[in-house]
Design a protein around this nucleic acid. Structure first.
Lengths: 67, 67
DNA sequence: GAATAATCGGGTAATTTGGGGG
DNA sequence: ACTGTCCAAATTACCCGATTAT
């Protein structure tokens, strides 16, 4: 193992977010397209979501969206 | 006096890059083969990746193509 | 040199994407 | 307005045995 571990923020797959919200994965995609959810893209175009943001939304904490 | 520090740019292992993107290590290998990610090879043939490039890609900053 | 973990390849399932329509 | 479903194409995940890293 390398001595240094780069800090990486935990990300979730579309399926994981869908399971947590009890919705279809395509619905999560719509949320991302609508800007309701921050999405990070893999180099192949697949979306990943911030775990902290998802948990906050699940907890009912209103998020602040710039623009 | 302290010894000199060789100029070494920080490199990441396939597993580290995979964790940061929340993908399988084999996917990172695929990106390297596709030329989407610069890869440096160890003498044994294992790949290492530039931390600065990985971070930039994660941040969504489009990189220039060397070609 | 030995032991364990990680990364190589390849091949095959499973997931995701985007658009369209109910 | 919001969601679930259908489709094909693209991308990713998991499997293996062999090689490399520590």
């Amino acid at each position: 193992m390398s001595a240094r571990t780069p800090e990486a923020e935990p990300l979730l797959t579309p399926a994981e977010v869908a399971t947590m919200f009890r919705v279809d994965p395509s619905t999560v995609t719509r949320w991302a397209k609508a800007g309701k959810l921050t999405s990070i893209r893999t180099l192949g175009g697949h979306r990943r979501y911030r775990e902290t943001e998802v948990r906050a939304l699940l907890a009912g904490i209103p998020q602040q969206r710039s623009e």
